[in-house]
Design a binder for these strands. Structure first.
Length: 657
RNA sequence: GCCAGCGUAGCUCAAUGGCAGAGCAAUUGAUUUGUAAUCAAUAGGUUAAGGGUUCGAUCCCCUUCGCUGGCUCCA
């Protein structure tokens, strides 16, 4: 993977918009490559050279094929987009246009709305700008000059952005042809670099992301250095579409949403219910092993309870309107915590009883605005795998560690291998969104950090992501396509125990306040299983597959043997189906393949004679004939070990040919 | 909720200001087959719902509902 220096310099140019006149030597003195990482040389000479080469763009160590070059390219692509739009629609006002994770966007305030036709037209114009290969140049001006420039262009949003910049600071502008934009850079040297790009979609977006501000039209696109990478990205989008849980849930008959029943409410069909049941059984078993008590609680409770818990004050926007029952108002539950607290409070608790771990597959209802609903991933009624741990302060860290271990174990069982840990803290700017004072928030945060450190887990801090009652660890999990999903969440809460005045009797005979840990491992059944559908692309591991084995007779003469095989499988606890329809065998195999049934057993005259089955695996194909009892044993083992991969292997030689 | 787009048979999709169609699935019959689609027939629709324009609307306009992509929000 040795790259020559010239090539590296061209990448560097890409990343920094090297001004005309800088030489290869300049570049070489300012930077050096170490194992494909661009390091900034230290020392005054290097610093000076660096500023000559790169203006004031802050070059940071950068991996060779990373980020920075692609970022610059996409940022320039965004400018090309804006330039094209301005050529076609001169009356448009420009918002902002940054590079993002997988591409770029630009926001426009336009009197005409951009449909698919407009998008195609804009893309054509962009191609023209690219072929013009306009040099991208950086200019530095003072604020006054920038102000008059954008005032003259009649660009109110740019003027607003300008006002947010500190007074007296130099303003950088980037110019390509007739187009000029307020921009920090960096960019690629000319528009000709933007070869492999594509516009993807238009969407509304609020100015400054604030729903009280104007709504602009955002055009999304993506760009890559090489065409090949763009093609690969577009293929990946196709793959994501194919795996979409809404598509697969329909094809595999797992669950549905019913227009007549109302949006955001999930109907679990028999096959989806089997998956859910398996997940829930596994969940229960693992929780019992770890000393959890599993409970059930009601779906409604008096309004007063929600007032006491603080939900009515802090969470009302997400709750459904009260209903009057015999003149007392009740609310549908959006969370399970108050119920578990009532169960805790039902008895006098000793310090010896703690920790008490109360778990429930609790169905909650939350008002989600119509526009945010998304398949089964974002719904209005869902079942959380919830638990509340009531612990003594001295047990807090240890219990958080226990929860972290449980979540890791469960995620791994489902085949999720990579995680990102986020420490969600209060928004320091606006503490009014949270209940309780610093003296309860700080120990909570400290306990979480200690637990994470004890497990040697590195994490990022997410300000403003805390729940209203406490800070949290939010775990993001990476699926088979490399996408990150919200996974387990662990929250420490000193507030609700206070509000409900719960206590345990300590060694000293006095009342002490327990601490609560709120946590979910899977999140919700709806979201988690929808995520699993996409993670496995519908091909569930054996233990979760709704149908585990499909028995397919070669002709109707083997109907009774087929039934016998199916009965043996069922006796072993396997979910087996015998396909006795009049269709051809090939057709039945196709159906089973499309339903992603793990194993198909083909039984013809030979097998009936020898007491064997011909095994076909959905991914491995034909595995040959094995003795029936041998297959049953291996299949049952694959289920009981929750194996992610098939363990039934090529034929046992005794079993047949 | 906001912006844009979409809504035709169970599913995937055609069509047109003038009789609404195909493939798959379903049903029935024939066929009994060796590792991804046997043949034929039948049935299936208030074109999301309501209103308007028109001699005539699935198509044009309005309202409502739902979905999709985003924004904001979130398990």
């Amino acid at each position: 993977m040795e790259e020559n220096s010239e090539h590296k310099v061209s990448w560097l140019e890409s990343a920094c918009a090297v001004p005309a006149g800088s030489t290869y030597l300049d570049v070489k003195k300012a930077f050096q490559w170490k194992n494909d990482v661009l390091m900034v040389n230290t020392g005054d000479e290097a610093k000076e050279l660096r500023s000559k080469v790169c203006g004031d763009c802050d070059v940071v160590p950068l991996t060779f094929d990373d980020a920075r070059a692609r970022w610059a390219l996409r940022h320039t692509a965004a400018h090309v987009l804006a330039q094209a739009v301005m050529r076609l629609y001169p009356e448009v006002k420009l918002g902002i246009g940054p590079a993002i994770e997988d591409g770029f966007y630009y926001d426009f305030d336009s009197p005409v709305s951009f449909g698919p036709d407009a998008l195609a037209k804009i893309e054509e114009e962009m191609k023209k700008i690219v072929s013009e290969n306009l040099p991208v140049t950086r200019e530095e001006v003072d604020k006054e000059a920038a102000r008059s420039l954008f005032a003259q262009d009649n660009q109110p949003y740019k003027l607003e952005l300008l006002e947010d910049l500190p007074e007296g600071e130099t303003i950088s502008l980037y110019r390509q042809g007739e187009f000029v934009d307020l921009c920090a850079g960096p960019h690629v040297p000319s528009t000709g670099y933007v070869k492999a790009f594509k516009l993807l979609s238009v969407a509304g977006a609020y100015w400054h992301g604030d729903e009280k501000q104007a709504m602009l039209q955002r055009i999304y696109g993506t760009a890559f250095v090489k065409q090949n990478d763009l093609d690969k990205y577009l293929e990946r989008l196709e793959e994501i579409k194919k795996r979409d849980h809404r598509r697969l849930a329909k094809d595999l008959d797992l669950f549905s949403l019913q227009e007549e029943g109302g949006p955001g409410l999930v109907y679990w069909h028999p096959k989806g219910s089997i998956i859910r049941e398996e997940v829930e059984n596994f969940w229960r078993q693992e929780h019992r092993k770890r000393g959890y008590d599993i409970v059930y609680s009601p779906h409604i409770a008096k309004l007063d309870l929600w007032k006491q818990s603080g939900h009515w004050g802090w969470y009302r926007d997400s709750m459904y309107a009260p209903m009057a029952i015999e003149e007392v108002e009740y609310l549908l539950k959006p969370m399970n915590c108050p119920f578990h607290i009532l169960i805790f409070r039902n008895d006098t608790r000793s310090y010896r009883d703690l920790p008490i771990r109360t778990a429930e597959l609790g169905t909650v209802y939350r008002y989600e605005r119509s526009g945010v609903l998304h398949g089964a991933l974002r719904v209005r009624g869902f079942t959380q795998d919830d638990a509340h741990l009531f612990v003594r302060p001295d047990q807090l860290v240890e219990e958080i560690v226990g929860v972290l271990e449980l979540t890791q174990f469960m995620m791994e069982t489902f085949g999720y291998k990579e995680y990102e840990y986020m420490l969600s803290l209060r928004d320091p700017q606006d503490k009014s969104k949270y209940v309780g004072d610093d003296d309860v928030w700080e120990p909570a945060q400290e306990a979480i950090e200690t637990a994470l450190k004890r497990k040697g887990i590195s994490y990022k801090v997410d300000l403003g992501e805390a729940k209203f009652y406490g800070p949290a660890i939010d775990v993001k999990i990476k699926d088979a396509l490399g996408r990150m999903w919200q996974g387990p969440t662990i929250q420490v809460d000193f507030n609700l125990p206070e509000r409900f005045d719960i206590a345990y009797i300590g060694e000293d005979g006095a009342r002490h306040r327990p601490v609560m840990i709120h946590r979910t491992v899977l999140g919700s059944m709806e979201r988690f299983i929808a995520g699993l559908v996409e993670h496995y692309a519908g091909a569930f591991p054996m233990w979760l597959a709704p149908v585990q084995v499909q028995v397919i007779p070669v002709s109707e003469k083997q109907a009774s043997y087929s039934e016998k095989v199916t009965a043996a499988l069922k006796d072993a606890g396997l979910r087996a189906v015998s396909d006795l329809g009049s269709a051809k065998m090939g057709y039945k195999i196709r159906q089973a393949q499309l339903q992603k049934v793990p194993y198909m057993l083909i039984v013809g005259a030979k097998e009936a004679e020898a007491g064997t089955v011909s095994v076909r695996h959905r991914a491995e194909g034909d595995l040959g004939a094995v003795a029936l009892d041998c297959f049953v044993r291996q299949a049952a083992e694959e289920v009981s070990t929750k194996s992610l991969n098939p363990i039934v292997t090529k034929a046992d030689p005794k079993g047949g040919d």
